[in-house]
Design a protein around this nucleic acid. Structure first.
Lengths: 343, 343
DNA sequence: CTGAAAGCGCTTACAG
DNA sequence: CTGAAAGCGCTTACAG
């Protein structure tokens, strides 16, 4: 196993200096066409490729972005990974992937790892967030964008942290309004992780939307964004005397779990016996087995905004932004039709 | 934005040489406890973390593994990403993720990128494979393991390439045997990508299993592992006069698409009117909306084998292995029960 | 446009 | 156990 050819090897073969070969591989560097073609020819002969690690050390930028995730069972996130890495690749960046185990997610240890790799930026799409994240990243001068979550820490304390989220609060309000339009009155909520901004905002939107009609959330249980816990939360809901006529589940992934329990275990029909509405509009919500009415999160727009914000922070050192993407209701078959059909 | 502290900064503060601080961060290096604790204290004060990029350049190993993927819509792959990156993290490796766009997947360009980053190894879980992969990786001396696929290139020409696959051929045979046991006679097959080893082996298993009973695949169409194409392939199947009584779909992802068409568009019942069987046993196959009978792929075992093989190639320079993981049938509700109930 | 040289932040023989 | 020094493969002022 001979080691890979270096710029020096190419220089020797092409009869130029090592600087010349470096320049030939640097877009916009000052080299004559003649030199460059000699170099490129020699490089091809040797199978030379610049060593990105060495380049990183010199330039002090790795062109690597850390992507921190968990909950890949929720199909929303694979979609995010896919789009994000493709957009980043287009811009000449690479993604170093960090998956936190859902449980003992040692965010600080992972962060340490990330910073050792001198990443140019961090995208955090994980619900769990290191409390020290802000401090450490600011100290290291690496920009981070929070994807689909905001921080509980006051934003002024997070000088290098941006965020891209859906307008979860308004989504929650849309749910409230839609449910009321359809004549639902006793509305239950199944939450995600209690401390996640996403779940909190969606619930707040629901609550405030309901309050306008003098209604309240009549029952609430916790699904923690987990399929099985969402099932259990659904059973719990029906164990109470407080019978609801509709359930807003904090995301589609849990909503599907909930539907499974309602249909198979409780033998109830949707939407005749109970209405269901989710959030995210994952591909599965459109499967015939579910046809879930839901609020969309526009993955594409979110990803594009994330990449744009992160790269401009990296390249132009502009200050952080907090971007909120609008959402809309996707009508399918888990809610009954409007009472007033003239609308 | 002051730049990160270096080993030199720590050395100054701790009153030792820069070598000493390097040794203090290298497990097993020869440093006295006294020196080490001085160093660690100073490091903590400065917030020092060794620069992994610089270390890589020195040691000539990056501790980065490239993971090449596509088709994340198929839930099998997110599962793979999740397990793989967790196992690799445990071993002190990191994953650099490359997603090929399903269409214009320029495998060679990606490979170039990968090699520039001096990755220690490559895991290819993408169906599309660069024809030059073998040559380039061998030249660069970087081991690759093919995940869930084997190469069409003869193995002797791939000196540094291992593979980990499910026993797809036997899975296909199990499908044939099961279908025949249940009294199915006219069996259709919906393939994945025509040139993917996985789809080919599953089909071969089916064909050979059927042949033992003097049966043949009565109809075949191509789904290319894509949800919408699988739908179209299903419609095509029913457009023919050749009415089948069971369909083997090359993976669960497509099988679900197929079920949607059969139930909603064709208004047929499963399994009463037609039997369905898939392959992979993705979580969705167990959803109540589908309850798909299928052949399991053991993600866990596959991932463990992949990591073991890859790391031993990297660390011990042993020669490549070709590992085949057994599979089993997961009985759910898309096939009718055995005719002979005494079995 | 070109080359010699310093420097990026580490690791690791080597000598003591 | 410890430090001075060379080296990993690049980039980039600097001088010509």
């Amino acid at each position: 196993m001979k080691s890979a050819p270096t710029a020096q090897d190419v220089a020797l073969l092409a009869n130029v200096s090592q600087s010349a070969v470096s320049r030939s591989f640097t877009p916009g560097a000052s080299v004559s066409e003649k030199t460059k073609s000699k170099v490129l020819l020699a490089a091809k002969k040797l199978g030379y490729r610049p060593n990105a690690i060495a380049r990183s050390l010199s330039t002090n930028q790795s062109r690597i972005i850390a992507l921190v995730m968990s909950y890949l069972e929720n199909q929303f996130y694979p979609l995010v990974i896919e789009h994000l890495s493709q957009e980043l690749q287009k811009e000449g960046y690479h993604v170093l992937l960090f998956i936190g185990q859902t449980n003992n997610f040692d965010a600080d240890a992972i962060l340490m790892d990330i910073l050792q790799y001198q990443v140019d930026g961090i995208i955090m799409a994980s619900a769990t967030l290191s409390p020290n994240l802000a401090k450490n990243c600011a100290a290291a001068g690496v920009p981070v964008v929070l994807f689909n979550r905001i921080s509980s820490i006051s934003q002024s304390n997070l000088p290098s942290t941006s965020s891209v989220t859906t307008d979860n609060y308004n989504g929650g309000r849309m749910v409230a309004k839609t449910l009321i339009d359809r004549g639902y009155q006793k509305i239950a909520f199944i939450s995600g992780l209690e401390n996640s901004s996403t779940s909190i905002q969606r619930e707040n939107g629901l609550r405030d939307g309901l309050a306008e009609f003098n209604l309240e959330i009549c029952f609430r249980s916790v699904g923690n964004y987990d399929f099985n816990q969402a099932k259990e939360a659904t059973r719990e809901l029906f164990r109470t005397s407080h019978r609801s006529d509709a359930i807003f589940v904090a995301n589609d992934h849990m909503a599907i779990a909930s539907i499974d329990v309602i249909r198979e275990e409780l033998q109830l029909r949707i939407p005749q016996d109970i209405g269901m509405i989710g959030f995210d509009n994952i591909p599965q919500a459109n499967w015939q087995g579910y046809q879930l009415t839901t609020i969309s999160q526009d993955v594409n727009q979110m990803v594009l905004a994330t990449v744009r914000v992160l790269l401009s922070q990296i390249q132009n050192k502009i200050k952080p932004e907090h971007i909120v993407i609008p959402c809309e209701i996707i009508e399918r078959n888990t809610l009954r039709k409007p009472l007033n059909t003239s609308l």
